[in-house]
């Protein structure tokens, strides 16, 4: 019930957006993410976009994990 799914916004309307979730197209509400743009990813929960995924932070985490994994433990 709580699992959020990342979905790519394909088309934006007033209160909803057409998104692509792993190849499946569906309509989700954008009441909580009204500023979302086409091409961005949102986390969807119970039919509503809840958060826009920040791709800069997503990439930063990748680097950080690499660093952690390589880090020596003193």
């Amino acid at each position: 019930m709580c699992v959020g799914v990342p979905a790519k916004v394909i088309e934006k309307k007033e209160y909803t957006a057409l998104v692509d979730v792993m190849g499946t197209k569906m309509e989700v509400g954008i009441l909580f993410v009204p500023e979302v743009e086409v091409g961005e990813y949102v986390i969807v929960h119970a039919g509503q976009g809840m958060s826009i995924i920040d791709q800069v932070f997503a990439r930063e985490s990748l680097n950080e994990w690499g660093k952690m994994a390589r880090a020596g433990i003193i």
């Binding site: 990342p6 792993m22 995924i53 990439r59 990748l62 690499g66 994994a69």
Partner: peptide, 13 residues
């Protein structure tokens, strides 16, 4: 489906 846009090297986990 990851909330990421580049594959994570499986060795990292």
């Amino acid at each position: 489906m990851p909330a990421l846009f580049e594959p994570v090297d499986p060795g990292v986990a």
